[in-house]
Design a protein around this nucleic acid. Structure first.
Lengths: 350, 350
DNA sequence: TGAGAGAGTGTTCACGTTAACAACACGTCC
DNA sequence: GGACGTGTTGTTAACGTGAACACTCTCTCA
């Protein structure tokens, strides 16, 4: 049984020809007040008498009134929609950010429109933001973990509330990000503390800020411990890349500790090491990054760094809401510290 | 350098006091035509002379004109936005559907608004749909893989273009789904063909249509082969649940072939089997479902069933666009056949 | 040569809402 | 008792766009 238009017209025998949704004027008429009073009830204005308020609310319920956000957006200039620009990816980090952000935003009464983008280059991002602007979104979040995204952000309207998630730490846009460097240091120090004389690093793609942050943190931890960083092995984020690099690492008998830039890489490395007969953690210890749901079931269960994506999402939303509320586009930045999750892929060297 | 309002006013020394976006009337004035002509250019109406069109386009470019979709939605009654209702989850299946759908939709010129929902019960879904309706979306997609979602769909406005992804096959709403049953049969037959006398099944949660579809397909394949189905072991979708059930399976020495309802379960089962000293695939063969990116790097690499999420998304979009275009809410349904991906977790029983 | 078709363009209105302001009732204070 | 707040309500004017309709040309054909 559909509900549209079913009970609306037969109240006084005067059928409304089109099954059009009830508007604010219909509610006003039924409640015997002006439409402006209805609007006041809608927006919780103080100066409405309790009885009037009740009458209006009853009328709204009876007509199944639903405010038309398009009309609202038109007259106010802004809609209660936040636009998100994200790459079309199922990568765990970005995907987690996205769903976490949606949840936070809808809790705050904002709808979320997503503009997926095939590549995070300047043009694609600009187009995506344009699509959002056509909808008159209240603000925009860009999940921009790669360098190419950065320059796009220089050419944004200055009055648009904007936050980057995982963007360029060097740039002066409002930014919320996982503390990549701290996480990497945590991982590296954990391996050092286990007794390893040095720690190798398999990094993500060079153009990801996550990668450079993790490299920096790893290097800093080593230098703090007074050890010379070995060369970085660079890869992309896939298990396949980890596997390829793992075949190199497996052949180098002095490699006893590896910090992989994410869990997928670690998974590939584990496979390569296993095929070479090098046992984890007895021969080689390894730490990942992300704490994907599978990590606890790797062979062996993977010690890794867990970022708090929910916290990132909440922080990003708050920064954005502050900008929307005040109208001032600040450039606050916030950094969420990740946490070490200890499992079984780390041991003392023998 | 921000771009809003920077170059707009100083053209003829007449500064526009508020940095308001250019509207269709501004373009009209600059081009020396009526706003309706501009509207015609915008909507590709035929009866506009080439020179006029060019003048208008030039004016649009000069003013950086961007149509206001809120105004459009107001006057037309529908916006070019499709609402998606999805559970707040990073589960691989639903998450993949979501991003795939976003891509298809934005290719078709539609924005996508996502309403995340904590649980797929009737109330949550109704609220989410309501939020979409407030935005006057052109249509709604519900990713509704669980039974509780079904009843919510009975109470939708009948004139709202609506498609379910992964919904109840019994119900008469338009539906696009992976052919769970066919996939499960494929997996089961593959194990049977390898020489196993029967195949055990570890299922997902009972209230997921995916689960019941996969159970049905598994059972059908066994019955076609004339073998009595062993009892179903039911679990949720997590590796942890797979691990728990795996501890049971590992103890039963006559279990040689297992079809797990998804790859995560398979991962947990693999771990349990390994801890019990049962070697995959020599002692036990196993097939999963989903082909998550990690599956090829499990120990051993997992033979699994790969659904084509992109195809599902495209099909869903097409069904929806057809409804939006014609105004008729049909109840087409489409089913996308998955594919077997052979790796190393299946062998002949010894 | 005049009627009619049709291309190109303009005018007016409506969509549903909020903001600004006006109006009115009622009480208080000097 | 009159001026003045203050709480409640109504009136009017936007917001930017598309649809309906009207108008002016120009071209064609009888």
């Amino acid at each position: 049984m559909g509900r549209a238009g079913a009970t609306a017209g037969d109240q006084n025998g005067k059928p409304r020809p089109p099954a059009r949704d009830a508007a604010i004027t219909d509610v006003a008429q039924l409640a015997g007040v002006s439409h402006q009073t209805v609007s006041r009830v809608l927006n919780d204005h103080p100066n409405v008498s309790p009885q009037t308020r009740l009458r209006v609310q009853a009328a709204m319920a009876e007509l199944r009134y639903r405010p038309n956000n398009a009309a609202r957006a038109l007259v106010t200039g802004r809609s209660k929609v936040i636009g998100v620009v994200a790459q079309n990816t199922t990568l765990f980090g970005p995907a987690s950010m996205l769903t976490a952000f949606e949840q936070s935003a809808s809790d705050a009464g904002f709808a979320v429109a997503v503009a997926s983008v095939r590549a995070l280059d300047r043009r694609s991002i600009a187009e995506a933001v344009d699509r959002h602007l056509a909808q008159r979104v209240a603000g925009v979040v860009v999940i921009a973990p790669v360098a190419s995204a950065g320059e796009a952000l220089d050419h944004m309207p200055t009055d648009l509330p904007l936050v980057c998630i995982d963007g360029d730490p060097q740039r002066s846009t409002p930014l919320v990000t996982v503390d990549q460097s701290a996480g990497a240091s945590l991982a590296t120090r954990h391996l050092l503390d286990a007794g390893h004389s040095t720690v190798w690093h398999v990094s993500g793609p060079d153009d990801w800020f996550d990668s450079v942050g993790r490299i920096a943190g790893w290097r800093a931890a080593l230098e703090r411990a007074g050890v010379d960083p070995p060369p970085v092995l660079s890869a992309d984020w896939s298990p396949a890349a980890g596997y390829r690099v793992g075949q190199l690492l497996a052949r180098m008998s002095d490699v006893t500790a590896v910090f992989a830039a994410n869990d997928h890489l670690a998974l590939g490395i584990l496979k390569a090491l296993r095929e070479f007969g090098r046992v984890v953690p007895q021969d080689v210890s390894i730490v990942g990054f992300d704490d994907i749901p599978e990590a606890a079931y790797f062979v062996p269960p993977l010690t890794t760094i867990r970022p708090d994506f929910d916290a990132v999402a909440r922080a990003a939303l708050n920064v954005l809401l502050r900008q929307i509320g005040t109208g001032v586009v600040s450039d606050e930045r916030e950094t969420i510290a990740p946490v070490l999750v200890t499992r079984e892929s780390v041991a003392a060297p023998r």
